[in-house]
Design a protein around this nucleic acid. Structure first.
Lengths: 206, 206
DNA sequence: GGGTCGGATTGACATATTGTCAACGCTGGC
DNA sequence: GCCAGCGTTGACAATATGTCAATCCGACCC
């Protein structure tokens, strides 16, 4: 991202105008990426859809990959918002798992493409400069891992698994399951039952 | 893919030359996509790397997305080749799971980017024309599901799960686990132990 | 209100990429 | 050797990308 600073930070001097443009661009990009895909979306299409001049695009983003990264970041923040409650709630661990998977599936039902973007391996589009910065997705995994660790500490979840590794695995799992469920028109109940059944059995202390 | 027909099919008349060009292009594309990413790879870079004229690129592929799709397909076939043995072997189910995950991880260790491409949601790059054709990845899932079904039929695996859904989930899981393992330098032993421990517990008949 | 200032926006344009096609090259058959 | 015909080529037309000098806008001050 090229933008000078955070939305508010760039002084009151036209800063509102600036962040409004950025917001419009990002929203437009999201619509177009989802509808037409990365390949067929041109920076100028995005500017037109956002109803800003086309030079404006480049004031906010370096190029198409840059705005795509921003889109992925945004998408990830949305999933995070959708599952943070269930994930960190006061319920027993198996109930938390169920609630979280349920929330994730409900969210993905509407915005599957958005989620696919959030969770995809960005390095396919852009390898970045060597060892990349943390992906947005890593934040999600960290949150999940912390929730698992809590279960371990309470003696509810088996302790012989690497929590971060499992957290990443679970993300991949839910993503793919949601994809398959949508394409095969599985009922949400069946999907939820299968995933929760599998995961709770996999994690439960013996 | 735009190519007229299968490699051999286009008569002996220069057909060998033709399929050689295609092969070189695909190999070049693979190197460049992995090294530079989709965004920064130009069709002409691919042609140059393949040491063919740049018009030749368009005789074999319609555009960049097309060759990317072919690359993903190829990658998927390779994973399939790597795991088909362990997956369908004569061992008991838990041993098959272990062998398969082991084979998948070993493969991914070398070619992680290739795998990420194979398993990613292609529709982000190119939504295709409405309801898309089966993704290469679906073949892998079908194979895995069949192997699970075999375990169920023998009464080794619990029967209350949707096998295809679990198969897709497992693919997502292994993909993400491999990604995380590489980035965090986890030992292969630890990764294997965690994944196998989790999966076998999740699937075992109670 | 009116003036001034500074960041934000704009779109025409220079640069770069993509895709086409008329001409040419190879190879196998006769 | 010559022809037939697919395959290849690279120059070039069509498109897309990214820059920047000119302009706009709104906040602030008098």
């Amino acid at each position: 991202m090229v933008d000078v600073a955070d939305d508010q930070a760039s002084g009151a001097r036209g800063g509102r105008r600036r962040s409004e443009s950025r917001r419009r661009l990002l929203a437009a990009a999201r619509r177009l990426f989802v509808e037409r895909g990365y390949h067929a979306t041109r920076p100028q299409d995005i500017a037109r859809e956002a109803e800003v001049g086309n030079g404006t695009f480049y004031l906010h983003f370096a190029d198409k990959r840059d705005i795509f990264l921003a889109f992925a970041e945004e998408a990830c923040a949305e999933i995070e918002a959708a599952i943070i409650g269930p994930l960190t709630g006061p319920e027993p661990w198996d109930q938390r798992i169920l609630n979280t998977i349920k929330a994730a599936l409900a969210f993905e039902a509407n915005e599957r493409k958005v989620i696919a973007a959030a969770l995809m391996d960005i390095s396919i589009i852009d390898p970045g400069d060597e060892e990349p910065t943390v992906r947005p997705r890593d934040r999600l995994a960290k949150l999940t891992a912390a929730s698992l660790q809590e279960g371990i500490d309470k003696g509810e979840i088996r302790a012989d698994l690497n929590t971060e590794l499992i957290a990443h695995s679970l993300l991949g799992m839910v993503e793919q399951a949601a994809y398959h469920a949508e394409r095969s028109n599985l009922s949400p109940e069946e999907v939820l039952a299968t995933l929760v059944g599998f995961v709770t059995a996999g994690l439960a202390r013996r």
